[in-house]
């Protein structure tokens, strides 16, 4: 399951990256999308537009293509 599959409002913990462009991956990681980060999907733009996430307390928007590269496991809570 990836961030892309999360429904709006749901949270999960980031597990690992699945492929994707390495340069983008480093950038996403520096923004706090690292293993163990708590990610909540806040909003999804229609028609495959960007996805809005809450990452450990702040809000970040990323493209769907990148959301598909981030594997998550549902948070315990």
């Amino acid at each position: 399951m990836t961030v892309y599959d999360l429904e709006a409002g749901h949270s999960a913990r980031l597990k690992s990256f699945l492929g994707g462009d390495p340069s983008t991956r480093l950038r996403l990681m520096e923004m706090g999308l690292v293993r163990g980060a708590k990610v909540q999907v806040r909003k999804r733009a229609p028609f495959g537009g960007p996805i809005e996430l809450r990452v450990d307390g702040y809000i970040l928007s990323i493209r769907t293509a990148d959301a598909k590269t981030m594997a998550v496991e549902l948070a315990a809570t």
Partner: peptide, 8 residues
């Protein structure tokens, strides 16, 4: 890459 922070 679109990685934009949406500030409060």
């Amino acid at each position: 890459p679109l990685v934009i922070e949406l500030p409060p």
